[in-house]
Write a protein that binds this DNA or RNA. Structure first.
Length: 288
DNA sequence: TTTAATGT
């Protein structure tokens, strides 16, 4: 019976077609994987953030945008990180701010009015101005996707955080040539309490981190953690931390492809020499 | 050249 079935021409034809389909799927996904890896390497120095311990909270997806990547968590209903490279050799004229837009890839209904009358700003992770300046208008539009927004208190978003963004693109990038930046939210260590603190569906962070790295054989790094509750006029260097501290607060492992010895030296200490931070730590904001 | 965002 089986042998007769096996000899049927239509059955063998189906097998052949299946084989061809599997071959195409294999080659196609292989090409997709290579393309994806190439894009990630271009947009994220030494690997996108990963996790040391696997828990439900560590599940996240990488959303690819023009000029930056976002690590999206369907548990937090929030981005966990945004990663981008800023270079001094590209300077595009920056146009008007485009509108905020829903990102359908998040699946969760996070819309431009999700933060309405909540007391929180829609704060950019990958910044509008710097991304637009380096990557142009299409990338600028992508920074206004709701998947790139976090609920931020106005005093932080419009003052302290804005001052940091301005120093990064106007001072550090011209001074150092190129910077790898990763930033994102810090959530309540108590998961239940955090899960209850939401704007719409989006979990409200307790603080935000920003990591800056000058790529190269002897990389230099600077890391900040800024809480929601600030006045806005504090000196930037008051918020310096080590990358190890950011990893402890977020559970993320940054720059996983770094050789262990380099990673230990880069991430274990706070070393601001060479950045000229003191000179810009107290520059006034534009909107206070 | 101009970097944030809300609310009306």
């Amino acid at each position: 019976m089986l042998q007769r079935l096996f000899r049927l021409p239509s059955w063998r034809g189906s097998l052949r077609r299946l084989g061809i389909a599997v071959l195409f799927a294999g080659v196609g996904s292989g090409l997709w994987y290579m393309e994806e890896r190439e894009v990630r390497e271009r947009l994220s120095w030494m690997g996108v953030p990963t996790w040391e311990r696997l828990t439900p909270l560590s599940l996240h997806r990488v959303l690819r945008n023009d000029g930056f990547l976002v690590g999206w968590s369907d548990v937090r209903v929030s981005a966990l990180w945004a990663s981008y490279v800023l270079r001094a050799d590209s300077a595009v004229d920056v146009g008007e701010r485009p509108g905020f837009r829903r990102d359908w890839r998040t699946l969760w209904p996070v819309t431009p009015d999700s933060y309405l009358r909540s007391g929180y700003d829609r704060g950019h992770l990958a910044p509008n101005y710097a991304i637009a300046r380096v990557y142009g208008p299409a990338a600028q539009r992508d920074t206004f996707l709701m998947s790139n927004m976090v609920p931020q208190r106005p005093e932080l978003n419009r003052q302290l955080w804005q001052r940091l963004e301005e120093v990064v693109i106007d001072r550090f990038v011209p001074r150092l040539g190129a910077l790898q930046v990763i930033d994102g939210p810090v959530f309540d260590a108590d998961f239940t309490r955090g899960a209850l603190s939401r704007v719409g569906l989006v979990e409200v962070p307790k603080a935000f981190y920003k990591i800056l790295v000058v790529p190269g054989d002897r990389p230099q790094a600077l890391a900040f953690v800024m809480p929601q509750e600030v006045r806005g006029d504090e000196p930037l260097d008051r918020f310096l931390v080590s990358i190890d501290r950011v990893e402890a607060l977020t559970g993320l492992d940054f720059f996983p492809n770094l050789p262990d010895a380099t990673e230990r030296a880069l991430e274990g200490q706070v070393d601001a020499t060479g950045w000229g931070l003191e000179a810009v730590a107290n520059l006034p904001g534009r909107f206070d």
